[in-house]
């Protein structure tokens, strides 16, 4: 809590003089242009198929919920539910594995802590293309192709390194005196983590979970290679919608809007922690 409010003041209270009105106009113009495709997508979802393709793009029109009704009727929800399960389950597993590891690195470091840390991150940086072939073979044998479990296993591995790096940087901010005082009192590692460290690092835990959810939700390469034959995640719904339904932009826009909405909301909430997660905790 303290961290986030400190960050907030730093982000907004730069004592620099107010920029000129021209600067403000330019900034707004640039932001509106960059944001336009998103706005356009959301609006198109509420148009009829005919208005969807009319030019200039109609910004004022009579909105309809027909697209949403139709998309929900062609089995969007199972995909959405799978995405939720994949993102949340993998994130839970990530936290279970990453919290002890990050605690070990930050507060009980052995000599090789740095090597371990770098080993973890190097696994995230290797392109998935390097492991996709054997995964396909193994999954085929293990009947994991087209299943959500197969994706959960991989999303956990994908987000584990980022989570360890992030959590480590959050854990190091917990005042050492508190930890040391607890150790003097003879508190074991389990109680040290659950009763002292975690309660103090709640904003960091939330930020880490958010980053993990964002990456899992948007993931495509594993999903298209290993799960596309089954009831997969939302990105695969979009792929299949295009191949099977063809030229229906308004319905596609409605599905896309539902697909991106959870992450856009999470991202807007976690804006301030985003940079820390994306830089693996290197930028505070």
């Amino acid at each position: 809590m303290a961290t986030s409010s400190r960050r907030r003041t730093r982000l907004t209270s730069r004592t620099k003089d107010r920029a000129s009105p021209a600067w403000a106009v330019m900034a707004w113009a640039v932001a509106l242009i960059a944001f336009f495709p998103v706005l356009n997508m959301v609006l198109t979802g509420f148009k009829t198929e005919v208005t969807a393709v009319s030019l200039p793009p109609q910004l004022i029109f009579w909105p309809t919920l027909e697209n949403y009704r139709e998309v929900l009727n062609i089995n969007f929800l199972p995909f959405f539910r799978n995405s939720l399960i994949a993102a949340l389950t993998s994130t839970a597993l990530v936290m279970v594995l990453a919290i002890p590891a990050a605690y070990g690195i930050a507060l009980r470091p052995t000599k090789q802590w740095k090597d371990v840390l770098f080993f973890f991150i190097s696994t995230r940086f290797l392109p998935p293309a390097g492991v996709i072939v054997p995964l396909f073979i193994i999954y085929r044998e293990a009947q994991l192709l087209g299943t959500i479990h197969g994706l959960i296993i991989l999303y956990t591995a994908m987000n584990l390194p980022i989570a360890i790096w992030m959590l480590r940087s959050f854990f190091e901010e917990v005042p050492r005196e508190i930890i040391d005082a607890a150790r003097v009192d003879g508190t074991g590692p389990w109680r040290e983590i659950t009763q002292i460290l975690l309660p103090m690092a709640v904003p960091g835990l939330v930020a880490t979970a958010f980053i993990s959810i964002i990456f899992a939700w948007n993931e495509f390469f594993f999903a298209v290679s290993l799960a596309a034959i089954g009831t997969a995640t939302v990105p695969i719904f979009l792929v299949r919608f295009v191949t099977s339904e063809g030229f229906f932009w308004a319905k596609l826009a409605a599905s896309s809007t539902m697909a991106v909405l959870p992450i856009v909301i999470v991202g807007w909430i976690a804006q301030r922690q985003l940079v820390r997660g994306l830089s693996m905790g290197a930028i505070k």
């Binding site: 640039v30 932001a31 509106l32 960059a34 944001f35 495709p37 998103v38 356009n40 997508m41 198109t44 793009p57 964002i214 939700w217 948007n218 495509f220 939302v234 990105p235 979009l238 792929v239 295009v242 932009w249 596609l252 826009a253 896309s256 697909a259 991106v260 992450i263 856009v264 999470v266 991202g267 807007w268 804006q271 985003l274």
Partner: peptide, 21 residues
């Protein structure tokens, strides 16, 4: 917030929207 948003858009949805619209 508006400037950050494109990064949060699911890449598949972003690609489709750019391609079509």
């Amino acid at each position: 917030t508006m400037l950050i948003t494109p990064f949060l858009i699911m890449p598949v949805a972003a690609a489709l929207h750019w391609k079509n619209q």
